[in-house]
Amino acid sequence: MGANNLSIIDLFCGTGGFSQGFLNFSTRFALKYAIDLDASASETARRNHPGILVETNDIRSVSPQSVQSAIRRKRVDVVIGGPPCQGFSSLRPNRSNKREDDRNNLYLRFAQFVEAFRPKVVVLENVVGLLTHQGGRTLDQLLESFTKLGYSVDWRILNAASYGVPQKRERFIMIAARDNRAVHFPSPTHFFDGKVIGFKDRSRYLLGGSGLLRAVSVEDAIGELPQLERGQELVCYDQDPKNDYQRARRARAKSLTLHRAANHSDRMLEVIKHAGPNISSIPKHLISSGFSSCYSRLSASEPSTTITVKFQSPASNKCIHPTQHRTITPREAARLQSFDDDYLFVGPYTEIASQIGNAVPPLLGSAIAATVLSMLN
């Protein structure tokens, strides 16, 4: 490893999208280790990061010391990760059980790895629901655990659409730094005029003004992909890319993958044919209930709403193609998450959908990487 290289470990790595953003941004970043409990997701990370130790395991049963031995280093420059956040979700606030969901304590394990590896910079990503979890006590404990380790700590709410991702995906980002480094966050590069989930302290949001680039829209992101009927799959592009975003995603792809439409039932297809911007477009006799965003189409002219693991289920969220009578394909969802078309996803389609929906958009990772690099310099 060159003297100028900056070593990273990625905890709760999922598909490896977050670390991919760092690697895409600068060749100075070098991924040394990643871990995730999900076998399909960690295999996806392994395929896309050949030669890197990607472990499939529960982090609670892995000691930092064993990782230090395996990668032959006691220190790394950067630790990144997103501890599982289902218990914090702002979408389903009353779902937690089993002592407020054991997964919510995984950030303490994250802190133990930080204590062992003493990175110069730490980046922790999570859902905005973390902020109000346990009346704010969880956030206080999280920040305190890093302050006690001697880090300067700060956090903001970042929206992926502000950084060139065609998706209004809000995330809590905590950055911690040691050795008296000042903590910085990436300045928005794109502007969108859209609703956000809402957190009372507006100073915590980083939103760009109207002088910036226009946000990347759904049409910008997926508009040149082949049209599909329900149940159909196509493996060849039939148009050239129409803009810089499409060109960048297709740069190294040899063929089109994961562009397969869900095989909707006749009844669901009837619902989809009526779909508009919200559930009120659907005739009442066709559906029984649902949130306002269910059974609705993505807007072609705006970034998409947050891509979830259920992006092929119209009853769960806004995921119907802007103009075609079907939900978006895994390839289209990956585009809206800013994955390049040559990024390999491993596993059955249901698991690939979960991997895509849970991922950190690589372009958001790259924006954060730029800030981390400036802090390290």
Rank of each mutant, 00 (worst) to 15 (best):
F172L: 09
A177W: 00
R169W: 11
V165Y: 08
I173V: 05
F191I: 15
F185S: 04
D179R: 04
P166L: 04
T189M: 12
T189W: 14
H190W: 06
F192P: 01
D193W: 11
A177D: 00
Y163R: 08
R178Q: 09
A161I: 11
R171W: 05
A176R: 00
P166K: 03
R181C: 11
R169L: 14
R181W: 04
Y163M: 13
I175D: 00
V183S: 02
F191P: 13
M174Q: 02
F185Q: 07
V183R: 00
G164D: 05
N180F: 08
A182W: 08
R178G: 02
S162C: 09
N180D: 13
E170L: 09
A176F: 06
I173L: 15
V183C: 00
D179M: 07
V165F: 02
V165W: 03
F192Q: 14
G164F: 06
H184K: 15
P186R: 00
R181K: 05
E170D: 11
F185H: 12
Q167G: 01
G164P: 11
Y163V: 13
K168V: 08
V183F: 01
F172D: 04
D179V: 05
S187L: 12
Y163A: 13
M174R: 02
I175K: 00
R169T: 14
A161R: 04
M174H: 01
A161W: 14
H184P: 06
P186L: 04
I173M: 09
A177E: 02
T189E: 13
Y163K: 10
F192A: 09
F192E: 03
N180E: 12
H190G: 07
A177M: 01
Q167F: 03
A177P: 00
F185C: 09
S187P: 12
D179C: 10
P186G: 12
A177L: 01
V165H: 10
F191M: 06
E170R: 09
V165G: 13
Q167R: 15
P166S: 10
F172C: 02
M174A: 09
D179F: 07
D179T: 11
Q167E: 11
T189Y: 05
S162Y: 07
I173T: 10
R181I: 06
H184A: 09
R181D: 04
Y163H: 14
F172V: 04
R178Y: 03
P166W: 01
H190Y: 14
E170K: 11
P186S: 06
A160L: 08
N180C: 10
I173F: 05
P188C: 08
E170M: 14
P188L: 15
F191N: 11
A177C: 03
